[in-house]
């Protein structure tokens, strides 16, 4: 690593103020640090300042609070705190699974929700200092002529990464709303944003796949009561059942049968919502025939690369498994 100054914030407001007063790229925001330390060790990021908000982690009892709007999860709640929470398990089983399946127990003990939502992709060309790829300001996506077995089969532009967050598909399926803060007019000001609008494939591959100004940070995430119920599910397909990244994953929420929400993970640069499938099954009983049709509709616009055609099959399979699990209920 290149030397940096390590600055710990004692409040979100202080952190936001430092971000607001800094140039983009100078300051790297760190929460649990799982992704940040990985990038620092590889040398991908060389910030002047690490802005540490890990110290703002709430006490376990305060990590998740129930209120009028629903269940509010602190941005720095750990994945373990979320997936062990009774209310999350009962009312948002997809979110519980989406925070229990990824990584390892020791990573989940440290990794925060906001960090999981804003982690950089795992593409092996991007993650290696040896490849100056599009996402690092280079002139090509090495996966196109290279080995793309784990790359995108949907929605890729010039850059073929897949969204790594396993929490995001479930949160989208459960209609979560982000509260985002920035420092303006001498204080911390807030806006809210449905997480369904948070992820966008950037025009410039060097930009993030999420909509957050460089001076903004996520404060908390609210799961609305309207999306609660036992009929949500998250399923992940991995080569290895001990720690591994998903080849394909799917979150489904059928609590409102008239307005189902379905999101694939690990197959596109962003969590991949399936609006056509949602329309297809809206208000319908999930028969074998309908599920088969859903599988076909889900992958109709897939664009596999040279080594990842199998992920199209897996996308259909994981959709079916998640649909059936959500239908049956937790």
């Amino acid at each position: 690593m290149i030397p940096y100054e390590f600055v710990s914030a004692r409040s979100f407001e202080a952190a936001a103020q430092l971000l607001a007063e800094s140039r983009r790229g100078d300051v790297l925001l760190k929460a649990g640090g799982i992704d940040v330390v990985d990038r620092l060790k590889e040398g991908l990021d060389r910030p002047k300042v690490i802005l540490n908000i890990r110290g703002l982690r709430p006490a376990r009892a305060d990590a998740i609070r129930s209120g009028d709007a629903g269940l509010t999860i602190h941005a720095l709640a750990t994945l373990t705190e979320i997936n062990e929470n009774e209310a999350v398990r009962r009312d948002f089983p997809a979110v519980a699974a989406g925070t229990r399946k990824p990584a390892t127990p020791q990573v989940r003990n440290v990794a925060t929700l906001a960090g999981n939502l804003c982690q950089k992709p795992r593409c092996w060309y991007y993650r290696s200092l040896d490849f100056r790829c599009l996402k690092k300001g280079g002139d090509r996506c090495y996966s196109v002529a290279g080995d793309n077995r784990y790359h995108a089969v949907f929605g890729a532009g010039a850059c073929h990464i897949v969204a790594p967050s396993s929490a995001a598909p479930s949160l989208i399926a459960c209609g979560a709303v982000l509260r985002i803060g920035r420092f303006a007019d001498g204080k911390l000001t807030e806006r809210t944003l449905p997480i369904a609008d948070f992820y966008r494939v950037p025009t410039n591959p060097q930009d993030d796949e999420w909509q957050l100004g460089h001076d903004e940070l996520i404060l908390d995430v609210t799961l609305p009561t309207s999306a609660a119920g036992r009929h949500s599910a998250y399923v992940e397909l991995k080569e290895k059942q001990s720690f591994d990244w998903a080849m394909a994953s799917c979150a489904v929420n059928l609590n409102d049968r008239a307005a189902p929400r379905i999101v694939l993970g690990a197959v596109a640069p962003i969590p991949w919502r399936l609006p056509k499938v949602e329309q297809l099954i809206a208000g319908q009983k999930l028969t074998d025939a309908l599920i088969a049709e859903a599988r076909r509709a889900a992958v109709a616009d897939a664009r596999p690369m040279t080594h990842n055609g199998y992920k199209v099959t897996l996308a259909g399979a994981v959709l079916e498994h998640a649909l059936r699990a959500a239908d049956e209920g937790a």
Binding site: W124, Y142, Q241, S242, W245
Partner: peptide
């Protein structure tokens, strides 16, 4: 050991994508 077909770089020189059987497997 996965090699990049273009540059010959090993693409998984770690214990994350060089996959070794774990307790759940």
């Amino acid at each position: 050991k996965i090699l990049d077909p273009v540059t010959g770089a090993m693409l998984n020189p770690n214990l994350e994508q060089y996959k070794i059987l774990g307790p759940s497997d």
